[in-house]
Simulated assay, not measured.
Amino acid sequence: MDKFTTLTGVAAPLPIVNIDTDMIIPKQFLKTIKRTGLGTALFHEMRTNDDGSVNADFILNQPAYKDAKILVAGDNFGCGSSREHAPWALLDFGIRCVISTSFADIFYNNCFKNGILPIQVSEEQLEKLLDDASRGANATLTVDLEAQVIKGPDGGEISFEIDPFRKHCLLNGLDDIGLTLAKSASIDSFEGQIADSRPWA
């Protein structure tokens, strides 16, 4: 998993409440178990028209936001089914950070396991960030995980809270497998002791 330290990029405003995981990545794209290739299907039903053509009005299809790295979204982001394909699709598109006033628990946990930083802010702070994100190509935010601050294009800062263990994992690029491998020396030592004390095993 890639480390998350400081992220600077265009922030796309998506002020929609209750964006569920089926909106993020519709069910017809869940046939794969690969984490790559899903970015093209991100928000498929909003990014395309009924005839399959590109919906030019959708925020991520607009030239200023097509390379967005940060998403500023409405309340209860990631609700619905527990599909891990949702953070996979966001990450494959290039989104490394989602900011909202609240997240569905399973989606929130899945983000950390896939190198995405979900940040919870107040309604007042969200309004300010949505205003920042509405500036098109100038809608650049900097997210400093170590300092736990979001820096706006006008120099303003918003502090955020994060669980210390999750912060450690993101800063060091540790998913569940990485956490296990970090203990490989202790695991090898334990297995050696078992082999010595139980040679018949």
Rank of each mutant, 00 (worst) to 15 (best):
N114D: 02
T142V: 12
I177K: 10
F112E: 05
I24G: 00
P13T: 11
A133N: 04
I150A: 10
D51A: 14
I99T: 12
K167I: 11
N109I: 01
A64I: 10
A12G: 03
G74D: 07
I158E: 00
T8Q: 13
C169A: 07
A139R: 01
S102R: 08
D188V: 04
K34N: 14
F190V: 08
L170M: 09
L179V: 06
L141F: 06
I116D: 04
F190G: 06
N61M: 07
S102Y: 08
I16E: 07
I16P: 01
L179N: 14
P26Q: 06
I59R: 10
R35V: 09
C111D: 02
P153C: 15
K3Q: 10
I194N: 05
G39R: 13
N172Q: 11
D154F: 02
L141T: 04
T140Q: 14
K183D: 10
R166Q: 12
C169N: 10
S100G: 00
N110M: 08
D196F: 05
P87W: 04
M23L: 11
G178E: 06
P15S: 09
S184E: 13
V143N: 03
R47I: 03
I16T: 11
K66I: 15
G115K: 14
K183A: 14
P26C: 08
I162C: 05
P63T: 14
L145V: 14
I150M: 12
D132H: 10
D196V: 07
M46L: 12
E45C: 07
F165E: 04
N114P: 00
K167L: 12
A56S: 14
D2N: 14
T5N: 07
A56W: 07
Q193A: 00
N18M: 08
G80M: 05
S189W: 04
D50L: 13
K113L: 12
D75N: 12
T36N: 01
L181H: 08
K31H: 12
A56M: 06
N61H: 09
D131R: 12
R47G: 02
T142D: 00
E124H: 14
A89V: 05
F43V: 08
R198C: 02
S186C: 02
I187F: 11
L60R: 11
L174Q: 14
L126E: 08
E124P: 01
D2S: 13
A147M: 07
G78D: 02
G74P: 14
N18T: 09
T40M: 12
